[in-house]
Design a binder for these strands. Structure first.
Length: 804
DNA sequence: AGCACGCCGACT
DNA sequence: GTCGGCGTGCTC
């Protein structure tokens, strides 16, 4: 019986987005399983590419065996993709218009993605002189970017003359960390004899032999060296003498720096009780229900999650908990680990690639039963799931913004159906989509309307900055907010100040002619960075010095505009010289662990004020924070996007919840130029339900989600006309295929029309029911593939987070 | 993506 | 007459 493997190859194109058949060599007959990574020869040159075994079949009578190539090698001892993830990859590819191989790669830790190396080897026909010139004394040459144009030219010529061979190698990047273990390799008697034969001065060897005679269990070489105060060379000699055996033992890299304190379940209030029992009964009845847990800030959602997870574990099942990247603070992870200890694995971007790989392997081997992680953790290879939790389900970061453009919430729901287990979507301010589904009974709504311990909601005041501007000079701080901060300083309490930077940045403008320094590669102005004293582009990373003289009119009146955290910090220093301030933004948190360190400093009262961007709004819990100030509530309101109000409401509600969580009452000040806007007024009252009603009415009127579905198409090209014409012809094509009920917005130039010298055009398709759309989009993708030689790229984003 | 094939212009 | 440009089709 000849076996055939169906293989998904690592060639991300439309035409190769299908399994290829390969013969399985006899040496691999009993070893190969679906889900393993392999290398296969592919294409005319038989270059080696990585592939995933998709299925193994018996050859049938009409299989053209002669046309098949043979698998080259296996890269894994056990499958890295199980049956569930395979069908999930299929579904993802279908719903996000991505290639199956791209989906597989996003589901796995990065180290499992192949790296390719191109090697040049001489063939016998190559003359000795040329061989010396090209290779020197090397037997082969690595083909990389370091080759000069002349070398490249020579190599291509030699290749054409068949004097050299160019081959590809797949490099497995996955490295398992090991420690060296040492163990006695002979009987105590034999070792005693060896000891007797030593010279009198060989004290180190004698002490080693003494140890070996009395201990036969393996010990870490490092520990043994320390314990006996011997060097590695002594052990090496001992190994050569046959006294000891050294073996490499696999270990996990431990991403947890600190030990945790074991915690006990808290007593639930009636609302929490109801929520927990609804979830646990779904788990126990294997009901793939979606719950929407709507609870005001401080209502104890996390405790509900933890007890739902505890129930799952008691029933022998496993649990997955998703948290937005930004709130994956030690606080949250600590709470989960505090309850479930070593069974918890964590997956987030703060881990090194090695740590991430090891956490993933612990999960894949069934050694971790609870996974806490950010977006991509939704693919954690947990078996037998009993509950899936998506905390802060409204967070935009759950949507990936490159291929595959999936939403972790959708994947979580898919997996819940696969495992017949419930999903809990939790939020104080649910997305309109989810809340609307709860309204239609698609999801079951669970409400936590009360804060635990009967804490009051903070007292929120709205400060009209237009008024403020009339009376005072231009400042980021109203007199009310400033005096409130001063009061906290005097009382030894802490303040949280948030600068809403969405859609906002500081720039440099010439006062004489209005010139703003643009990025040479993108159609956007450069952002000022005072820490490096440079101008940077947020899109392509271009960096240049701050001009002294206006490049346009040679004038000297260059001024800074806009508000950045650095500028606010400087102003705050001036107004309150004694206040100790910690600034948290992308610049101060870029380095690994910086985020945690700053939060810890603030928690330890090393500062009075935490000043930051959105990242301070989520999931922080500092008992001595009694004041929250939002410096500019409107910047996110002004964005030309249908979700602008929703985002603003969510952000304000969330940040307000940070005030006064313990026994001390909290106060919140929201500075705005739109004091009457409903998003701001309702955030003041923390009235989500009213906001939902109001916003739904507006969405209905504007034919926006959740009343309509949306797909966003983006075309980009180095040539602006090509991007535009491609879009125009796509619109024509869509109008011809789709029903008259669809609404097509655009094409319009992208919000930033040019990024990295590529021009962007986009269009949004809004529809309610459009059976022909899916096929039409795949057709468009197929056509785009043909044009991609010219540099045209088409991106399809289903259910986009924004229309911008 | 990468490679071969094939059809056109500019060189020894 | 050939070398080499890149447009096109195909990869088990």
């Amino acid at each position: 019986m000849t076996q055939i493997a169906l293989v998904i190859v690592d060639v991300p194109t439309m035409q190769t987005n299908t399994p290829y058949s390969y013969l399985i060599p006899t040496t691999l007959q009993h070893q190969l399983q679906p889900g393993m990574r392999i290398t296969v020869p592919f294409g005319r040159g038989d270059r080696r590419v990585q592939g995933f075994v998709w299925a193994i079949q018996e050859a049938t009578a009409d299989t053209q065996l002669d046309d098949l190539k043979t698998i080259d090698s296996v890269m894994d001892l056990t499958p890295v993709i199980n049956a569930e993830l395979m069908s999930l990859a299929d579904w993802l590819a279908q719903t996000t218009y991505a290639f199956t191989i791209t989906c597989l790669q996003t589901m796995l830790p990065n180290v499992l993605k192949a790296k390719y190396e191109k090697w040049v080897t001489p063939l016998p026909t190559l003359s000795t002189e040329k061989r010396q010139a090209v290779f020197g004394n090397q037997t082969r040459l690595l083909w990389d970017d370091h080759l000069s144009t002349e070398q490249l030219h020579d190599l291509l010529q030699l290749s054409r003359q068949h004097d050299i061979e160019i081959s590809y190698a797949v490099k497995n990047q996955a490295r398992v960390k090991t420690v060296t273990m040492v163990q006695a390799n002979e009987t105590p008697e034999a070792l005693a004899t060896a000891k007797a034969g030593l010279r009198k001065t060989a004290t180190k060897q004698a002490s080693l032999l003494d140890y070996l005679i009395s201990h036969d269990a393996p010990i870490k070489q490092r520990d043994l060296e320390q314990q006996l105060n011997v060097s590695a060379s002594i052990l090496k000699t001992a190994e050569q003498n046959g006294w000891v055996k050294r073996t490499a033992q696999e270990v996990y890299r431990d991403p947890f720096q600190s030990a945790v304190i074991k915690t006990k379940p808290l007593t639930l209030n009636a609302d929490q009780e109801r929520a927990v029992s609804a979830i646990t009964s779904a788990t126990n009845q294997q009901d793939a229900k979606t719950f929407l847990l709507e609870g005001v800030t401080g209502s104890g959602k996390t405790e509900v999650y933890l007890q739902a997870i505890a129930n799952t574990l008691e029933h022998g099942k496993n649990a997955l908990m998703l948290v937005p990247e930004i709130s994956l603070t030690p606080q949250i992870v600590g709470r989960v680990r505090g309850r479930f200890g070593k069974q918890v694995a964590v997956l987030h971007s703060g881990l090194s690639v090695g740590e991430r790989f090891d956490e993933w392997r612990r999960i894949n081997r069934g050694e971790a039963r609870v996974v806490v992680g950010a977006r991509s953790a939704v693919f954690a290879p947990l078996n037998n799931l009993g509950v899936i939790i998506v905390d802060e389900e409204h967070e935009a970061s759950y949507k990936q913004d490159d291929n595959p453009r999936y939403h972790a919430r959708d994947v979580a729901i898919w997996r819940s159906h696969y495992h017949s287990c419930p999903v809990v979507l939790g939020s104080a301010t649910p997305s309109l989509e989810s809340r609307a589904r709860a309204q239609k009974q698609v999801y079951q709504l669970l409400n936590l309307p009360h804060r635990v311990n009967h804490q009051q909601l903070p007292d929120v005041s709205i400060i009209d900055m237009t008024e403020e501007l009339r009376h005072h000079k231009e400042s980021n701080f109203s007199s009310e907010l400033l005096s409130a901060i001063t009061t906290r300083l005097n009382r030894g309490e802490q303040s949280l100040l948030m600068l809403n930077r969405r859609g906002y940045s500081s720039f440099v403008m010439c006062r004489d002619c209005g010139f703003v320094v643009p990025c040479p590669n993108c159609d956007i102005s450069l952002t000022l960075h005072m820490d490096t004293k440079t101008m940077k582009c947020h899109y392509c990373g271009h960096e240049e010095p701050i001009p002294r003289v206006c490049p346009n009119c040679r004038g000297h009146h260059i001024r800074y505009y806009g508000t950045g955290t650095q500028k606010v910090e400087a102003e705050l220093h001036e107004l309150l010289p004694d206040a100790r301030i910690i600034r948290m933004d992308v610049d101060t948190t870029r380095r690994k662990g910086a985020h945690e360190r700053l939060l810890k400093q603030f928690g330890d009262h090393q500062a009075d004020i935490l000043l930051g961007t959105q990242m301070i709004a989520k999931g922080l819990d500092f008992p001595d924070v009694t004041l929250v100030g939002v410096l500019n509530a409107d910047t996110s309101l002004g964005l030309p996007d249908f979700r602008a109000s929703e985002r603003t409401f969510q952000l304000l509600t969330q940040v307000s919840g940070r005030a006064g969580r313990a026994d001390k009452p909290g106060q919140v000040f929201i500075q705005t130029y739109n004091p009457d806007h409903y998003a701001i007024q309702l955030a003041k009252r923390q009235d989500y339900e009213q906001f939902f009603v109001k916003e739904m009415r507006l969405r209905h009127r504007g034919n926006y989600p959740p009343y309509f579905y949306a797909v966003k198409l983006t075309a980009s090209d180095l040539d602006e006309r090509k991007a535009a014409t491609a879009m125009i012809s796509i619109v024509r094509q869509l109008k011809a295929t789709l029903s008259a009920n669809v609404i097509i917005l655009g094409p319009t130039p992208g919000a930033v029309a040019r990024i990295n010298n590529r021009y962007y055009y986009q269009l949004v398709i809004k529809y309610k029911h459009e059976p022909a759309l899916n096929q039409a989009l795949f057709t468009i993708l197929g056509q785009a593939q043909k044009q991609s030689r010219g540099g045209l790229q088409i991106a399809i984003d289903r259910n986009p987070m924004s229309f911008m």
